[in-house]
């Protein structure tokens, strides 16, 4: 069974086990709720943070540089001088925090381990007990294949798939499809931090923040017709998701411009970046443009020309959904 490589795993465990020791109270910092607009009310802020030296001279991501990259992105997003201040605007001690990762692509193209470790570390420093953090996706085996170490119980960061706890029996619905929600979302996550990957998708066009919620429901196959439109937008309208979703940290360290969602090394590239926003629609629009630029650079047709443009993004922004904005004039992109 695959597990996290030894160095990262050790660090991950260290972070988890020492969580209680570095636990701090959050103080009186004002908290952002999911329903509130992002830092700049008039525009949705999307931070694209890059580090060309993220991997040093090797192929794996340097955990210290990742932490620094994450800090820079969070500070830029929340206009704070210190990263912990940014995190304290997001979470409150005592809250249960779920990190919804994406592990469909195995080790090649899943949410980066060093990124997840960095987020867990900062959450704990912001006052979240390690045991109140759960890193999760649909399936524990898939998570292990992606390098995550499945962990349940104890005062350490939890890490497992919905297969370990099942879905709620009750159906929820927005639009035409009813679904059962992961109990990790409903029972283990007061706050949802979305950690998708920047990828091409054969059906939806791209898979980023909004589509990562397909891993929350028991029947994602029923949401794939017609380019996943309007299903992606409908799914993200569910109150159980909307009220918990506070932040998306999209992993663009390794990205894919073609052939997704499964890993195709021939269509991947090292962007060495994070895309961070509280507006998932703006983030998806921004990520889509990055993929289009890469496709153009590689001599590929646009997704529109391939008849798989991500129309779900516009649907998510429309008057019925209002999940965010896809209007570039209303998106403030901050590149650092």
């Amino acid at each position: 069974m695959n597990t996290m490589h030894s160095g990262s795993r050790r660090e991950f465990l260290r972070t988890a086990l020492t969580g209680a020791a570095i636990l701090r109270t959050g103080g009186g910092t004002r908290l952002l709720s999911a329903a509130e607009p992002s830092a700049a009310p008039a525009k949705s802020r999307v931070v694209v943070a890059r580090d060309a030296q993220l991997r040093g001279t090797g192929s794996t991501v340097d955990s210290r540089r990742m932490l620094s990259l994450l800090d820079g992105a969070m500070q830029a997003l929340f206009d704070r001088d210190h990263p912990i201040e940014a995190w304290r605007k997001l979470v409150r001690p005592g809250e249960l925090v779920g990190l919804k990762v994406n592990t469909l692509g195995g080790r090649g193209i899943s949410s980066n381990l060093e990124l997840v470790e960095a987020i867990c570390e900062r959450l704990q420093e912001a006052g979240i007990n390690a045991g109140n953090i759960v890193v999760w996706d649909r399936d524990s085996d898939e998570m292990e294949h992606a390098g995550f170490h499945v962990t349940m119980g104890g005062n350490r960061v939890q890490c497992f798939g919905t297969d370990r706890v099942d879905y709620e029996q009750e159906l929820v619905m927005h639009g035409s499809v009813g679904s059962r929600l992961s109990k990790i979302l409903t029972q283990r996550s007061d706050v949802l931090i979305n950690v998708p990957v920047l990828k091409d998708h054969d059906g939806a066009g791209v898979t980023l923040a909004l589509k990562n919620m397909y891993g929350v429901i028991h029947n994602p196959n029923k949401y794939h017709p017609d380019g996943c439109n309007p299903y992606i937008a409908d799914l993200n309208m569910l109150a159980e998701i909307r009220t918990r979703m506070r932040l998306t940290i999209c992993d663009a360290t390794t990205a894919m411009y073609e052939g997704g969602p499964a890993f195709k090394p021939e269509h991947s590239w090292k962007e060495n970046a994070l895309i961070v926003s509280q507006d998932p629609v703006a983030l998806d629009y921004t990520g889509w443009q990055m993929i289009e630029r890469k496709r153009a650079a590689m001599g590929l047709k646009t997704l529109e020309a391939e008849e798989r443009a991500p129309h779900y993004i516009a649907t998510a922004a429309d008057a019925e959904h209002r999940l965010g904005t896809n209007d570039p004039k209303r998106i403030s992109t901050v590149e650092i």
Partner: peptide
């Protein structure tokens, strides 16, 4: 008749 086009590692509508 749905004729699902299914990418690698994905499932058809039937699940």
């Amino acid at each position: 008749p749905r004729e699902c086009k299914v990418g690698d590692k994905e499932r058809g509508y039937c699940g």
